[in-house]
Design a protein around this nucleic acid. Structure first.
Length: 417
RNA sequence: CGGGCUAUAGUAUACCGGUAGUACGCGUCCAUGGGGUGGAUGUAGACCGGGUUCGAUUCCCGGUAGCCCGACCA
């Protein structure tokens, strides 16, 4: 991608109405556009990164047998009335011209349960897991924290269906491991803790994935020795005894909830009539679990954790481009420009995702923009490089500079996840 | 949803009851060319409605929007 053709631009100043680091940087860098409070559009650069995040999540969900689908956003009140969730405040609702109310989905247990009820009739149809990556709508009373707490946001919601609690329990552990892999792959694994939280009617606990950050909204208590955390909502002596943790080893921390997994039991299958026949012909309710990650919130979390005073810093796994090729040519046709163009062509042929700064700007401005965009590796083409064929590569995260030949560059696997 | 603050050019910000200023951006020109370069010149603005007043962008009221604190948050 030639930077001269990107329709978004970087901005020197952050918008006055954004306080959160993630929104200030993402807006400055042209990754997102704020439409209104809690509602953001994802511009080409932002969408590339969001797509990388979604891709990683999709791979991990597929790896545990998840089958992707997309459910409707418009929701039929009937199924939500059956589970007593139609009256909740989080809904955005509207009405049909033909009469009757509908809602915009803020989660989808009811919908997937009804779909499943059309497909499942025997224990032979179980287990299975289905997920979607879809825009959710929540009428938050107060949007805040930039893209991390919006009224419209992307969510990956996986639902699993089982004949028995034991089968759910086993799948739940696999899902928990898959979640840990997702957070590790996007670069926040070390700061992310499985956190015991309130469980609801069918299990003692749910598990949140909480990433330590001052930008978070949750208070958790981290046990480093056990490698887990406890949400302040459920912290009490019973829970401590249950988990074998002593209170004086806990660290109080502020954290961002980047994922949440729940055992639903028959909370939804019973009211919505999702049952199966067992080996003896007896009808039994399906046992369910649900598993959520917000890719947009995850993107905001990555920014909160990894960016620095100069701008964004993307891990390779989610960067919009692998390489930022910066030409310091003075004129479109000069030796430096020709060397830059040639290297860009080579990178394209080699399949390296490259952003090519071919703009007619001074070096300082290009470097400042490069720092702001946060692409992992910057390759600079100046007079020396054009003359000697040796290019300077700078690591955005560490600032480490290395000298590489064209061959070195083309054989480097910049796209490595 | 309670409380508070705010609303001026594309962006960030001044000042003012009487012609709205600056910086960045954008256009043109000259110089410059490895960390947001220097100069010249042009461009573009008072959220909406009502009130007070000779006159309101400024003061008052209402609305709308944004932000912060709290509450809320499978």
């Amino acid at each position: 991608m030639r930077q001269s053709r990107i329709f978004t631009r970087t901005r020197r100043e952050a918008p006055a109405d954004e306080v959160s680091k993630n929104a200030r940087l993402l807006v400055r860098a042209g990754f997102v556009h704020k439409e209104m409070a809690g509602v953001y559009s994802y511009l080409p650069l932002g969408l590339r990164t969001l797509g990388k995040i979604v891709g990683i999540i999709r791979e991990e969900m597929d790896a545990i047998g998840g089958q992707e689908l997309v459910m409707s956003s418009l929701q039929d009140p009937e199924i939500w009335k059956a589970t007593d969730r139609w009256e909740q405040d989080v809904w955005f609702k509207t009405s049909l011209k033909a009469g009757g109310d509908i809602g915009f989905g803020w989660t989808q247990e009811e919908a997937i349960t009804r779909i499943a009820s059309q497909q499942v009739s025997s224990y032979r149809d179980l287990p299975f897991a289905a997920y979607q990556i879809q825009t959710k709508f929540r009428n938050e009373e107060r949007a805040k924290s930039g893209i991390m707490r919006g009224r419209e946001f992307l969510m990956k919601d996986l639902y699993s269906f089982h004949a028995s609690q034991e089968d759910l329990d086993a799948f739940y552990e696999r899902a928990k491991d898959a979640y840990a892999r997702v957070f590790a792959r996007v670069g926040i694994g070390a700061q992310t803790f499985v956190t015991f939280a309130s469980g609801g009617a069918f299990s003692k606990y749910s598990h949140e994935f909480q990433t330590l950050s001052s930008a978070g909204e949750d208070t958790i208590y981290v046990s480093r020795e056990k490698g887990l955390a406890i949400n302040s909502e459920v912290l009490n002596d019973d829970v401590l005894a249950d988990l074998g943790v002593s209170r004086d080893t806990l660290e109080e921390q502020t954290a961002i909830e980047v994922g949440n997994i729940f055992k639903l039991g028959t909370r939804f299958s019973e009211p919505l009539g999702l049952s199966y026949k067992d080996e003896f012909g007896a009808a039994k309710p399906v046992v369910m679990g649900c598993y959520g990650i917000g890719p947009t919130r995850l993107m905001g979390t990555i920014v909160e954790l990894l960016s620095d005073e100069k701008g964004l810093v993307w891990p390779k796994s989610v960067a919009p481009f692998a390489v930022h090729l910066v030409s310091l040519a003075r004129d479109a046709g000069d030796e430096v420009a020709r060397a830059s163009d040639a290297l860009y062509e080579d990178l394209q042929k080699a399949g390296v995702e490259s952003l090519y700064d071919d703009r007619d700007l001074r070096a300082g401005e290009k470097f400042a923009d490069g720092d702001l965009l946060g692409i992992p590796t910057r390759i600079v083409v100046g007079k020396d490089a054009a003359a000697t064929g040796t290019f300077e590569a700078v690591d955005r995260a560490t600032g480490v500079v290395s000298k590489l030949s064209r061959e070195d560059i083309l054989k480097s696997n910049f796209n490595t996840k």
